[in-house]
Simulated assay, not measured.
Amino acid sequence: MKIAFYGSSILSAYWNGAATYYRGMLRALAEKGYDITFYEPDVYDRQKNRDIDPPDWCRVVVYDGTVEALKQVTAEATKADIVIKASGVGFEDDLLLEEVLRHAAPHALRIFWDVDAPATLAELRANAGHPLRKALETIDLVLTYGGGDPVINAYREIGAHECIPIYNALDPHTHHPVEANPRFFGDLGFLGNRLPDREARVEEFFLAPASRMPSQRFVLGGSGWGDKGMSSNVNYLGHVGTADHNAFNISAKAVLNISRSSMAETGFSPATRVFEAAGASACLITDYWEGIPLFLAPDDEVLVARDGQDVAEILSGLTLERARQIGAAAMDRVLREHTYAHRAEEADRVFRSAARRHSEAAE
């Protein structure tokens, strides 16, 4: 089956946290025989900061950030059996959704793939006239990359015919153990862009412990933190390209996952970095959110902190030997249960089931 996928970017992770999710998910679907074209706008300097070249498992069409170019690429949706519009593309999202649905062939499965469901649902609750509300009448299926029952129920309440989470996972092709890199040495590393609903949690879970533990070395990667006040034992690296993520994850004694506020409150929303760190055999400390044991076992495969004091206490008592044991156990778990090959099996079943219902409804 042919898939036309309209998303933010598959070529660049620059200010684009969904990139590795797209890559892992679509590579795995391509390996199952799907013929995929990914359409991404040339905005936010993403094309100047590409992490990968166009892959051989997916055709990539980069279009200018203009309405005219948008209309040209959405016209190609008519050729696809599955038409997917992702959330947060970043250029004329409402118009893009309208045009994609307008051009989708009558037989095509229409999907909205939400890579930030808590934020999208907050917008929908605040705006009764939001274009997505009306579009849900003709969208066959909403997929999300997390959220569990809270997100499923919320989408159904506002009119979605069906909502199914396809969770983040590990792509072993790209995230795996490598040699440590002295550039990333430290006791605790955190990798994440500076975002409004993450900043306060980064202060609490990372910067505050750093200021209280001057003898420990902290390593911070991600865009936007350059003018942020931080203690002298924090080594700020700026943007870290995906090619260096494995080394970043494995080089510090432990790495930290800090969920955005909306994700933590919703629960059942493991960030991509959770699986990427585990895939590199890193010892992961995560902030608390509902549903962690569905993915990794606390204390054995992941360490859980409810606040910055917990982070400091965990770090103070964490030996290198135990960190390595936790990292190894986490890698075993995700390879066994949480790769994108596993997610693609699920997505394939969902697609085929939804396509049958769509076809039956049209008869």
Rank of each mutant, 00 (worst) to 15 (best):
G224I: 01
E204V: 06
R133I: 05
G159I: 11
Y21S: 09
L96C: 07
R322W: 00
N246P: 09
L124D: 02
P41Q: 03
L141H: 08
E98R: 13
Y236N: 07
A280Q: 10
Y155W: 14
E40Q: 06
L11D: 00
A344K: 14
A347I: 08
T37H: 06
L195A: 11
N16R: 00
V302F: 04
L109H: 11
E346K: 15
H338P: 14
Q325F: 03
R260N: 01
H245F: 03
A169R: 09
G226W: 12
S269H: 11
L294K: 12
A254W: 00
A69Y: 10
Q72I: 08
F206A: 04
F218V: 01
N127D: 15
G308I: 00
E31R: 13
D244E: 07
G229C: 14
T37P: 12
S211Q: 14
L315T: 11
R356Q: 11
N193Y: 09
A104R: 09
Y236K: 11
R322I: 07
Y288R: 13
A19D: 03
E290G: 09
G221W: 00
R201S: 11
N257K: 05
N233V: 06
A30E: 02
R27Q: 12
R333N: 13
N235P: 07
P55K: 00
H161I: 05
F295K: 10
I326E: 00
E363D: 13
A341W: 10
E204G: 08
N193L: 02
L136A: 01
Y6D: 03
L256Y: 02
A208Y: 10
P270T: 13
D299H: 08
V234F: 02
Y155E: 03
I258N: 01
N16H: 00
A117F: 07
S215M: 10
T242G: 01
V60H: 03
A160L: 06
N249E: 05
V43P: 09
A86L: 11
E76V: 12
L109I: 06
L335Q: 13
D114C: 05
A362S: 15
L315A: 01
P55H: 02
L97F: 00
G224Y: 00
S251P: 06
N249K: 08
V61N: 05
P196H: 07
V62C: 03
R198G: 04
P298A: 01
